[in-house]
Every structure is written in structure tokens, then in C-alpha cells.
Write a protein that binds this DNA or RNA. Structure first.
Length: 492
RNA sequence: GGCCCCAUCGUCUAGCGGUUAGGACAUUGGAUUCUCAUUCCAAUAACUAGGGUUCGAGUCCCUAUGGGGUCACCA
């Protein structure tokens, strides 16, 4: 069965990582069934509209490798895809409901509603509209309308009934209708609320499966009622687990890290890795496979395997591991491409310098090869390799700590400098450096640690680097000896 | 508070009446080693509690407890 899914974000801020998950599941369902994935902008709240957020959202989706068949940018058979451009449609349907007696005009002021809610809260009863305007006569309504009194249109929720529906994840669900408020359908500014707009649009756009976060579950009965009043067939509902931090029962929060989908890219995560990670936020194949490309995911994803648990944890530690895994499994060329791209887009913002960018590509690839398994994020590259491109700053005291005293440190450096000077340029290889260095170790009875760590530090300015002789071999004879001599002079 | 939902190693989870309760992350130990990583091997570690149903329950039912969602002219 061909499925049509939709992702319906509201342009009220940044694109949340949870929305990326919803989009991914929508995409997989549509693509996996040969159907269409549509994007629809739910911009019915004018007060919260954020300039440029639609464009940023589309870009983020593309950056993650997702595409859509219909949407605000490309249009489609059910134009337009901005709800703000469909006002007439919602109005028409709302009026149809009023006509049939399933909705009614309400002229209550927001002030009155607020007071009403406060009273109800104080009494400890369900907060809902008291139906003050339900029984206004046609005359009164007409008069109010003519006077230009602000109004809303409310759904007339039937009393004393259980509203039942089926969710594909949770199964049969039932809500007592008496707890459901007479939801506003059309706001006083003429815009529809979410509830009216989704139902109308999902129907008109022939959406077959509605995927959304679990927070929507309690308002689904309202939608069910709307489908019933309109006499429309309902789509399948699929409510997804909420996202939360590991070690916390709280929702995902900015304080513990990014929640913005685009920010992960900025922070050096690979889109493939984030996507792979996001796939498992509420779903898993029931097998032990956990590395998934988008294509594989589209093939394996099924609604049946979506978790029933309330929340799925966003394990940042695991995301980091996964990202490192992806980095290590890329070919050198692919990885270099990603490093370059990251630096082009984000290094300035991140405040790091892409020294390798000005250097020889062949050399760069060798450098990358040495550090790749030490990288968990793309942004770590620049710091990891800086000493290949510029002389390090070294600290005298620090250089001495490996051998215990300054005299010995100088001695080590001098002896190795001398030994290395005897190696010809052609013989300046990892194997030779290794052989000669070890023989010097024996000759002077240095421990491997004191000697090699001293050399490592004065040449690179770092305590941890790739294997020492790989580093020296790549750095070249001249550069290595320059640095050793410089260290010697500053230490004496 | 009302309504609704959920409950397995430290963490994320698999499990859909009979399993030595599986995997991954993390942790610890070992191998490799000049450091840091990587890689490989190994170890530790879980069914919230109490009642039922059943020959047999992590799995089905009830209750308690715990957690979460939601109660707007926001989505």
C-alpha cells in the first residue's frame, strides 16, 4: 500500500532534532511504500513566526540527505503548502460545521476565559469552556457578527461518550468526551488552530499516515471528532515516543547539549551518523544490526517496530561513538572531503584555523591517515594536526618531566639529533627511524618512555600523538632536526 | 488534581507463554605499544512490588508504586 506522509513543522524557531526524527520516519514510510513524502508549513500562529526559519529548515533537511515530493518550495498537486495561504479553505469547512450544528460561534473575551480557567483550577475541576455561547440564538449571533464583535468558532464536543480510536503504536485508545474542551477551531484573527488545520489539510492532501510526537495523543480525540463530523475517513495515527536526556526523565534540553538539528553538523557530526543515531530514537529492527544507511533504513523501517515506551533517550555518548565509527569507516578521500567541507562552512564560526587548507593535498592525506582513528568529530581535526603545519610552542619544564631532570632531557635530545642527522633523506622512513631510535635506546640505556616521550613532546608540543616515528617520517628530516635543535637551544 | 500512556543490565534496548534473558554504549581486565587512540579478547551487570490466570510468566489480567504526556484564540 502506497503511503502518503507529511511532516508539518511550524516556523517558530530552530529545527529540532526530534523533528528530524519525525521527518526521517515519514520519509522512510513514504519511500518504502512507493508513496510520497510531503512538507507542509504550519504557520498559523502569526505571533510566533520566525523570519527565515522555513528556509533554514529546508536546508537542514537537505543537509541530512532527506528529500520531499511536495512542499512549500516545489509546490505540488495540493497547493499551497503554507497554511497561512489556505485560510479560505479552513473558514469554509468551519462554517460547514457551524451549519451542521457541530461547531458554534463564541464571543467570549479572553479575559473572561482566563478568569473561568482560574476558578476551575481553584475548584480542582477540569478546565474547559463553560459553553456560555453555545445556546446563543441565530439572531444574537447575527447581531454580534454585524456589530463586528470578535469571535471564534468552537467545536461542539458531544457529551457523555467515549471517543475511541486506534494508534498504530499504542493500540486501541479511549478518552471520555466530557474531559475534552470545546476546542477553538477558528481564532479571532481568522486563522485556524492547529486542530482544524491539520485535519482539513491531511484530508485534502490525502495523507494516509500521521506521524507525530506523543504529546499530541491527548488532542487526537478532537481530531477524531472532526473526521467524524466531516464524514471523512481517518488516516492512521502513529504517535512517537518523546525524546529525553539519558540519566534523566526530563525532556531533551538545551542545557545538556544541542537539540537543534543543524547544530550537530556545526559541531562536527556527520549527517549519516546523526541520521543513523536518530533512527534508533524510538525504533529498532529487532535484530542486532545497528549501523544503517538511509537506504537500508527505508527498507527495514516499519511502524510495528516503533517503541511503546513513553520516551526514547538521547544518549549523547553513544552518538559520539557512532560518529567516530563513521569517521573511521570512511575512505580517506571521503573523509578529507568532509573535513574540508566542515572547515569551509564552520571553522570560522567555531574559531579554529584550517592550516591544512593551504598545504599540499598529498601531505594532508598522509596526515589525515595518521589521525583519523583519533577523531570522533570533524572539528577535532585542526587541533589534532596543528603541529604538522606549524612549529609547536613548548614548555621547558614540561619537556624535562619525562626524563626527570633537565640535564638528561638535553642529553636525550642531543643524542637523538645526532643520530637522526646521520640518516640520509632517502632513508628517512618509519622503519629506519624505528630501528635507529631503538638502537640508541640501548646504547645510552634510556627507557623507551623517557626518550620517546621527550622527543615526542619537543617535536610536536603534545603528549599524545600518532606513533612517534610515523610523525617524524612525515614531518621530514629537516623539520624534525630543526625542531630538535630549537628545543635544545631553548632548554639550555 | 482530572484524563491518557509507559515500566528489562549503570545507560539505550531485544524479547510478543517454555531463552544459559540477547546486543550496543559505558565501565573494568587482558593482548598490541613510545604516548593517545584504534582493533581484538574477556568480565561485571537487569525483568519495580504484590496478587492472580497457567503445568509453566519478563511476556496475559488486577492492584500498588514510580515515571511521563496533556489539560490555550501555541503548535
Amino acid at each position: 500500500m502506497k503511503m502518503r506522509t507529511r511532516m508539518a513543522p511550524s516556523p517558530t524557531g530552530e529545527f529540532h532534532i526530534g523533528s528530524l526524527r519525525t521527518a526521517l520516519y515519514d520519509y522512510a514510510l513514504a519511500k518504502g511504500s512507493g508513496g510520497e513524502f510531503v512538507l507542509r508549513v504550519e504557520d498559523t500562529d502569526r505571533s510566533r513566526y520566525v523570519e527565515g526559519s522555513v528556509e533554514r529548515m529546508l536546508k537542514t533537511l537537505k543537509d541530512y540527505g532527506l528529500s520531499w515530493d511536495e512542499g512549500p518550495d516545489i509546490g505540488g498537486p495540493y497547493n499551497p503548502y503554507f497554511q497561512s495561504q489556505r485560510l479560505d479553505i479552513y473558514k469554509k469547512y468551519a462554517l460547514e460545521l457551524v451549519e451542521k450544528g457541530d461547531a458554534y460561534y463564541c464571543f467570549c473575551s479572553e479575559d473572561r476565559l482566563k478568569k473561568l480557567r482560574e476558578e476551575q483550577t481553584k475548584k480542582g475541576v477540569v478546565t474547559k469552556y463553560d459553553r456560555c455561547c453555545l445556546n446563543l440564538s441565530k439572531e444574537e449571533v447575527r447581531k454580534n457578527l454585524e456589530e463586528g464583535k470578535p469571535y471564534v468558532i468552537r467545536l461542539k464536543v458531544p457529551q457523555n461518550e467515549n471517543i475511541e480510536f486506534e494508534d498504530m503504536v499504542l493500540g486501541k485508545l479511549s478518552f471520555p468526551s466530557d474531559d475534552i474542551d470545546d476546542q477553538v477551531l477558528i481564532k479571532s484573527d481568522g486563522f485556524p488552530t492547529y486542530h482544524l488545520a491539520v485535519v482539513v489539510d491531511d484530508y485534502l492532501m490525502r495523507i494516509t499516515h500521521v506521524l507525530r510526537g506523543r504529546e499530541w495523543l491527548p488532542s487526537t480525540p478532537k481530531h477524531v471528532l472532526l473526521y467524524r463530523f466531516f464524514g471523512w475517513e481517518m488516516p492512521k495515527f502513529v504517535h512517537l515516543p518523546l525524546l529525553r536526556e539519558t540519566d534523566s526523565t526530563k525532556k531533551l534540553s538545551k542545557r545538556t547539549g544541542s537539540v537543534n538539528a543543524a547544530e550537530f553538523l556545526k559541531n562536527g557530526y556527520l549527517p549519516e551518523a546523526v541520521l543513523n543515531f536518530v533512527m534508533f530514537l524510538g525504533w529498532n529492527p529487532g535484530t542486532e544490526k545497528e549501523i544503517y544507511s538511509l537506504e537500508e533504513f527505508v527498507k527495514d523501517f516499519s511502524v510495528e517496530k516503533i517503541q511503546k515506551s513513553e520516551m526514547a533517550a538521547f544518549d549523547r555518548q553513544k552518538l559520539l561513538w557512532l560518529n567516530g565509527f563513521y569517521i573511521r569507516n570512511l575512505s580517506l578521500e571521503e573523509l578529507w572531503g568532509k573535513v574540508e567541507k566542515w572547515n569551509r562552512e564552520y571553522s570560522e564560526e567555531a574559531g579554529t584555523e584550517f592550516l591544512a587548507g593551504k598545504s599540499d593535498i598529498e601531505f594532508n592525506m598522509k596526515v589525515l591517515n595518521l589521525v583519523r582513528e583519533r577523531m570522533k568529530r570533524l572539528d577535532e581535526f585542526n587541533d589534532l594536526v596543528s603541529y604538522f603545519y606549524k612549529k609547536p610552542e613548548i614548555d621547558k619544564k614540561f619537556a624535562e618531566k619525562f626524563s626527570g631532570d633537565s640535564k638528561k632531557a638535553r642529553e636525550i635530545i642531543a643524542n637523538f639529533t645526532e643520530a637522526y642527522e646521520e640518516i640520509s633523506n632517502e632513508d628517512w622512513t618509519v622503519e629506519n627511524l624505528d630501528k635507529i631510535s631503538h638502537s640508541k635506546l640501548e646504547e645510552f640505556s634510556y627507557s623507551p618512555k623517557e626518550a620517546f616521550m621527550t622527543i615526542r613532546y619537543v617535536v610536536t608540543g603534545q603528549e599524545s600523538t600518532p606513533p612517534l616515528f610515523d610523525v617524524l617520517a612525515l614531518l621530514g628530516k629537516k623539520e624534525t632536526i630543526d625542531r630538535l635543535i630549537h628545543a635544545l637551544s631553548m632548554m639550555s
